[in-house]
Design a protein around this nucleic acid. Structure first.
Lengths: 74, 74
DNA sequence: ACGTAGTGTAAAATTTATTTTACATTTAGG
DNA sequence: CCTAAATGTAAAATAAATTTTACACTACGT
């Protein structure tokens, strides 16, 4: 019931919009590089706060970067 | 540096759009009532996942409900 | 006055996000 | 070949979100 998933386009945005490295993005939003790696690779989804910070770096809305899909099998 | 704050309009939305109780919203998004209370009263901000679920209940975007403000004194 | 629904608060426990540290891999340049 | 930069992985520790349980308060209907 309500198994959901959040994906993001951070990796593409880093290259296309700013050509920035994981470390640079991490510094800009105030987390460690490991956090960026984990989020890019879908280990877990960020806090709302971090999602906002990331979206601001790219001058985009939260939902332009993160997309929520609810898999409703069962 | 980068002290930020996330506010929300969940309380108003509950009344205006659906006249729903904290418990009903909690059930709809799959958390306990305590979580809704904590978020409405600013004890902490929700996970991105929960923010998405709540926004879907009200048929709104995440940023229509949650607003991020960065206090940049210093 | 009594009972109930909706809400607020709080402490301990659990889960999840994030940090820290450390090391492996790939790629590009000297 | 050697080095450095960028990335991936992983385990243990810490911080933050969420659950569980429990109780207090107000407002409302009877």
């Amino acid at each position: 019931m309500a198994k959901c998933h959040i994906s993001n386009t951070i990796r593409v945005l880093r290259f296309n919009h700013h050509e920035m490295t994981q470390q640079q993005l991490a510094d800009l939003v105030g987390v460690t590089r490991q956090t960026i790696v984990a989020i890019e690779n879908g280990k877990y989804s960020p806090s709302l706060e971090l999602a906002f910070k990331i979206s601001r770096v790219f001058n985009l809305g939260v939902e332009d970067i993160f997309s929520y899909t609810e898999e409703q099998e069962k």
